[in-house]
Computed example of a mutant assay.
Amino acid sequence: MMNKSYFALVLGLFSASSMAHTALMACYDEGNGYIMCEGGFSDGASAEGVEVRIEQNQSVVMQTKLDEFGEIYFEKPQSDFTVVLNAGEGHVVYVNGRDITE
């Protein structure tokens, strides 16, 4: 029979590992016609090379990756858009362009 404390420890480890790194992204209007977004993970890990898409009307208008600083800069689209950070299964972040301010 499995020891109850061992079971609790194993369950705790699985829970901690599933929440160990949540993808994060913040975007800012630079005030000069450009948007800057920075991404990372809640455990402090770099998001360098993680895929980012700019979508308008459910179509991808730009696809790139975060640079060595975990950032991207792009020209602000004239109409509604969404920035999507795709760090893999369960790690997708959406930022509505309307929520991006100077």
Rank of each mutant, 00 (worst) to 15 (best):
M1L: 10
M2T: 06
N3T: 13
N3D: 10
K4L: 13
K4N: 10
K4Q: 14
Y6E: 14
Y6F: 07
Y6D: 15
F7W: 07
A8F: 09
L9K: 12
V10I: 10
V10Q: 10
V10L: 08
V10R: 04
L11Y: 13
G12I: 00
L13N: 06
L13K: 05
F14V: 04
S15R: 09
A16N: 05
A16P: 06
S18E: 12
A20S: 11
H21W: 07
A23L: 09
L24F: 11
M25L: 12
A26W: 09
A26I: 11
A26C: 12
A26P: 02
Y28L: 15
D29H: 06
D29V: 02
E30I: 12
G31M: 10
G31F: 11
N32E: 03
N32H: 05
G33I: 03
Y34W: 03
Y34K: 10
M36C: 08
M36S: 13
M36R: 14
C37H: 05
C37Q: 04
E38K: 15
E38W: 07
G39E: 05
G40K: 02
F41E: 01
S42V: 02
D43L: 07
S46D: 06
A47Q: 01
A47S: 00
E48S: 13
E48M: 08
E48T: 15
V50A: 09
V50S: 08
V50E: 03
E51I: 13
E51L: 14
V52K: 00
V52G: 03
V52R: 05
R53S: 08
I54P: 01
I54R: 01
E55W: 03
E55R: 10
Q58R: 15
V61S: 00
V61W: 06
V61N: 00
M62V: 07
M62D: 10
Q63A: 05
K65M: 14
K65D: 10
L66K: 10
L66C: 09
E68A: 12
E68M: 08
F69G: 13
F69C: 00
F69Y: 15
E71S: 04
E71M: 11
F74Q: 08
E75H: 14
E75C: 12
K76F: 01
K76T: 06
K76S: 00
K76N: 00
P77A: 01
Q78K: 15
S79P: 00
S79Q: 06
D80I: 00
F81M: 01
V83G: 04
V83C: 06
V84Q: 00
V84K: 03
V84H: 04
L85S: 00
N86M: 10
N86T: 05
N86H: 06
G88D: 06
G88A: 07
E89F: 08
G90P: 12
G90M: 02
G90I: 07
G90D: 05
H91L: 15
V92I: 14
V92L: 01
V93S: 04
Y94V: 03
Y94D: 06
Y94T: 02
Y94C: 05
Y94L: 08
N96H: 09
R98F: 01
D99S: 14
D99H: 05
T101K: 12
T101W: 15
E102G: 11
